[in-house]
Design a protein around this nucleic acid. Structure first.
Length: 221
DNA sequence: TGCCAGGCCGGGT
DNA sequence: ACCCGGCATGGC
């Protein structure tokens, strides 16, 4: 029985302590920014490697045209590129969003409650099968729209935990996810908050161009 | 001004 | 199994 590389340093104690430090500093983050499950799914796709401010504009454009509804948006999919232009990579993302809409409509009649009857592992496989949906997007949808206890790994997670030497190797996505899910109780609310806190901390204290991290609460880990 | 932002995919080694 | 370039807009 060998210990996975990613967990050599970050055992249960560190993972839980990091959460407590982040929560103590920042408090609840009230994520995901979006009102309905469908809005969250759209946002998850549009925010790929993109600032949320730009994504927010794109979603506002969709709302203005009363198209933030799966079947209507799919019927009017020729409008998607112009609506989501502000979110960047708009030709690419139009295809990805359209592919997701098609999947959501054909498999679940665009009904989140039908989706909620499917076990997490199978849903993840299905989502990963949609072209343009990768690990992070799939898991964001699973956690924030379907409310499953899934740890979402993103660039911020890697940066924060590497910079504070909590990983001693360069673990892959699934390795990191398994590590956190092993040590965080399986409650969606907790995974929601943990991911949101990591993003908050990374934006404020753990920026890419400032390797210093002054005042970062995780300096105390 | 150049770098960055809540990735993913396809092609090359 | 990695590593890289492409994809695009808007803020600082």
């Amino acid at each position: 029985m060998k210990t996975p590389a990613a967990s050599r340093k970050a055992g249960p104690y560190l993972i839980q302590r990091a959460y407590k430090l982040l929560f103590a500093r920042f408090g609840p983050q009230h994520w995901w920014p979006g009102d309905t499950p469908f809005e969250i799914m759209v946002g998850a796709i549009l925010t790929q490697n993109t600032n949320w401010r730009n994504v927010s504009r794109a979603i506002d454009n969709i709302k203005e045209k009363r198209l933030l509804e799966p079947k209507r948006l799919y019927e009017q999919r020729h409008l998607i590129p112009s609506l989501i232009t502000p979110s960047g990579f708009y030709r690419l993302k139009s295809k990805r969003l359209t592919a997701f809409l098609k999947y959501f409509i054909e498999h679940y009649d665009a009904d989140i409650n039908k989706m909620k009857r499917v076990p997490t592992a199978r849903l993840r496989r299905e989502l990963l099968g949609v072209p343009g949906i990768g690990h992070e997007t799939a898991d964001s949808i699973l956690l924030y729209a379907v409310k499953r206890p899934v740890f979402v790994v993103d660039a911020y997670t890697r940066r924060i935990f590497s910079r504070h030497s909590l990983f001693d190797s360069n673990p892959g996505y699934e390795e990191i996810r398994a590590l956190f899910e092993r040590h965080v109780p399986h409650r969606p609310k907790l995974y929601n908050e943990y991911h949101a806190l990591i993003v908050r901390c990374a934006k404020e204290f753990c920026k890419k161009n400032e390797p210093r991290c002054t005042d970062c609460p995780l300096n105390a880990v």
